[in-house]
């Protein structure tokens, strides 16, 4: 069963534990500037929104890469950057409509979310359940449940 990261911004508090976990998992340091997931704080609306790669089925980044450095991980379905192949041309960063693949000046390569090989550190670190790792075909299940709960199925008294 393939799984997806599922993000519920309403549960996000802006603690950035996800960014810390991501940088630690992938770079071995606590460094939010190296994180592949970012939390955006819309101060005046009081909204905080975690954002990262959604692993497009037909990934623009993967299609655009001239050296075939971005490949599908058969186990997770993640589009994974192979650093040994990446030449740092950044074409993928232009191709991605969402901005979720980015250049890393220190390494001269790009980076993006790779779902941590199937155990995403961000989801594990999130204290509120704003980031979860769920069945890919049913990312809408929680919303459906919420709406289902609001559906009036009680028999109405006739007037």
């Amino acid at each position: 069963m393939q799984k997806s990261l599922h993000i519920d911004p309403n549960k996000c508090t802006g603690c950035l534990q996800c960014e810390m976990a991501c940088s630690y998992e992938n770079h071995g340091v606590f460094n939010i500037s190296k994180s592949r997931i970012k939390v955006f704080n819309f101060e005046h609306a009081g909204r905080k929104v975690p954002y990262t790669c959604t692993q497009c089925a037909e990934a623009w980044c993967m299609t655009a890469c001239p050296v075939d450095a971005i490949r599908i991980d058969a186990k997770t379905g993640a589009k994974v950057v192979h650093e040994d192949v990446c030449v740092g041309c950044k074409v993928c960063t232009i191709a991605c409509p969402f901005g979720t693949v980015n250049y890393v000046a220190d390494s001269g390569k790009v980076q993006k979310c790779d779902l941590c090989g199937g155990e995403p550190a961000c989801a594990d670190a999130c204290p509120t359940g704003a980031i979860t790792y769920v069945e890919a075909d049913w990312t809408g299940l929680d919303k459906m449940r919420a709406w289902a709960g609001k559906t009036d199925t009680q028999p109405r008294a006739s007037a």
Binding site: T13, G14, C15, L16, Q17, M20, G46, R47, K48, P127
Partner: peptide, 19 residues
């Protein structure tokens, strides 16, 4: 109250954001 909010790294999130 609009939402609660956390400071950096905080898993309590006592902060208040209001309108």
């Amino acid at each position: 109250l609009v939402t609660n909010a956390a400071c950096f790294g905080c898993t309590i999130a006592c902060g208040r954001i209001s309108r």
